[in-house]
Nucleic acid binder design. Structure first.
Lengths: 348, 348
DNA sequence: TTGAAAGCGATACCAC
DNA sequence: GTGGTATCGCTTTCAA
């Protein structure tokens, strides 16, 4: 059957015309049968012939031709910069898997596309060429107003951006990073901490999240007249952490929200190496809180207290997106992508 | 300018016809100008008028229509199961970013798509509908022969699968996981270890990698008559690690290659909690080697020896792919995606 | 220097 | 029940 030298690209892939010829019917009939619109129109025997012909030829419909004709595409674009996997970790991978499957069941093709371009508008252009039914950003610089405008003008039915705020015309997927900071701050304040450091990662992709989390801690601190919040710049290197630890004494901080578990681990190590003690209780111990609740949080000593995100099931998010696609003129809506809570352990 | 209620999807996105009308020229002229084929054909002033019209209308070409007409698509599909980000970690994110940018410069659109379907053939069908210029798998179950056949028949010019072996007609991207095991094994043997455990992660997505790495360690051990290799099943939970640590004594292993840094961390912690000592040197110390060389490898105590992958620059991989697309009839080729070496530290 | 028209593949209306 | 056929947006050859 197969060419022993290995199959090569057929000069012309089978079209619905080829299927029609082979089955001895017209293209229209093929279309009806293969799209389930044949009920009461096409005879059983004919249907079987068509299906057999399609099978034998290895016919696969041409998505581009279909959506050209239909006037609407079926791809849902997840616009995610490269550092998304790093920022979200395994959480994101799991969500993405479920989301793509759910979209598939709804008749859409979920596809992840980075922004290879410099400006948001250039990226939006690249996405718009694919005429997606919807565009979602979960991370990174949110789309600006011109980018959203461009997508809408090119026919994108629904544009969803991550919060906290969305440009006009875009829906909002809210995974409010302020809330992460808020929970961490509340937790530390409830344990009597008053001089709280908040790590601001030097890694550029994380800046937006970091600022929101910092704002959250500040919001929590605002309820305590004697609470202070101090931003701490930290890069993901041992040197940077050592510098921070060396200057700890003079800052006199008694707690730190370390952005995430990885930064927390780095900082804990540096603080311990500098002779500080980490943990709950009084007596000069420094409370450390991470985020993401990775396995490593439980492996550190002391065990790391961590803010964990409870993510909305991907099926539900897919359903939202589908609904928004069906009603492109809908007023901008906001959907919570998840909530945060603190997993308390020994470190703070 | 903008509707204050927020822009809505325009009933009909601007087409090249609209641009032509606005500029007072024909569609052909618009096409020439906007694709840089206007040299010597269209006057300077006309070109300027066309460009201005396109700009004002927010015209974005319709990729589907273009590739339908051209007969060849421009999307390069990265077929990656959901656990890819987990398996590869930050390494993968960085590679992906560079790869998409490089493809963009070559005129292709790199897009990540999971396998929403149960069978490889069903997944291949979903991909084939997009008529990609190329399909790459970097991870997960490799495509089987029927899947590759299906893609080729639907016009995919190049199919690349990760090694070690590829189905007929597919090219191979080789990041030989056996080599990771081989390096780890050689390293441990050179340091006098003879009873080597190899972690086999219980997580299903990692099974293929794990077996290859185990095979690599076995290959290294084959050169030492008195060396033994023992597979160790381990899930990413503390309970699982504790069980393994409890049974360590009776196994009498003096070294372990822990699949990656995360499993290594987990196992190290369990071994230490069970009273074992980790590190180089004699005297009952257990040597532990991880992989991926994450930051955490340097933060653990003792510092974790780790096998690190040196990945081929994404620009080069993109160039390979582009070349294979241009020559669809080429005999199957093999490209090394990277090599492994050991970053020796204190743990083994 | 510019325009008219064919045609890529799939779909759905309207005849038969 | 089934088959012609116009149409989606774009590129490109050929003619003017």
């Amino acid at each position: 059957m197969t060419d022993p030298a290995g199959p090569r690209a057929t000069p012309t892939p089978p079209t619905s015309t080829a299927v029609a010829r082979r089955a001895g019917v017209s293209r229209a009939t093929v279309s009806y049968v293969l799209n389930g619109q044949a009920a009461g129109r096409v005879g059983e025997r004919t249907q079987a012939r068509v299906r057999a012909a399609a099978e034998e030829l290895g016919y696969v419909p041409h998505a581009a031709a279909r959506s050209l004709r239909a006037g609407r595409g079926s791809i849902v674009l997840l616009a995610a910069p490269a550092d998304t996997a790093v920022a979200f970790g395994p959480l994101f991978a799991r969500f993405l898997a479920g989301f793509q499957t759910a979209l598939h069941h709804l008749g859409y093709t979920g596809v992840l596309h980075g922004a290879p371009a410099a400006s948001p508008t250039a990226a939006a252009r690249a996405w718009a060429e694919l005429r997606p039914a919807a565009v979602l950003t979960l991370h990174g610089p949110p789309l600006d107003a011109p980018a959203v405008e461009l997508l809408h003008r090119s026919g994108t039915a629904a544009v969803l951006t991550h919060g906290p705020s969305a440009p006009p015309g875009a829906h909002t997927l809210l995974l409010d990073q302020r809330e992460a900071g808020l929970r961490a701050g509340e937790h530390l304040l409830a344990r009597g901490r008053r001089r709280i450091g908040v790590v601001r990662p030097a890694e550029p992709g994380l800046a937006a999240f970091a600022e929101s989390r910092l704002a959250g801690v500040r919001a929590a601190a605002a309820t305590h007249p004697d609470a202070e919040v101090h931003p701490l710049d930290l890069a993901l290197t041992e040197e940077s952490a050592a510098r921070l630890a060396a200057a700890w004494q003079e800052r006199g901080l008694d707690a730190v929200f370390a952005y995430n578990d990885e930064y927390a681990m780095l900082l804990m190590r540096a603080l311990q190496d500098a002779g500080h003690t980490i943990g709950t209780g009084a007596g000069g111990r420094i409370a450390v809180v991470g985020a993401d609740d990775l396995l490593l949080a439980r492996l550190l000593r002391p065990r790391l207290t961590s803010v964990r995100a409870e993510i909305t099931p991907p099926e539900r998010v897919a359903a939202w997106v589908a609904a928004l696609i069906r009603d492109p003129a809908a007023a901008p809506t906001t959907h919570r992508l998840g909530t945060f809570h603190v997993e308390a352990r020994d470190s703070g």
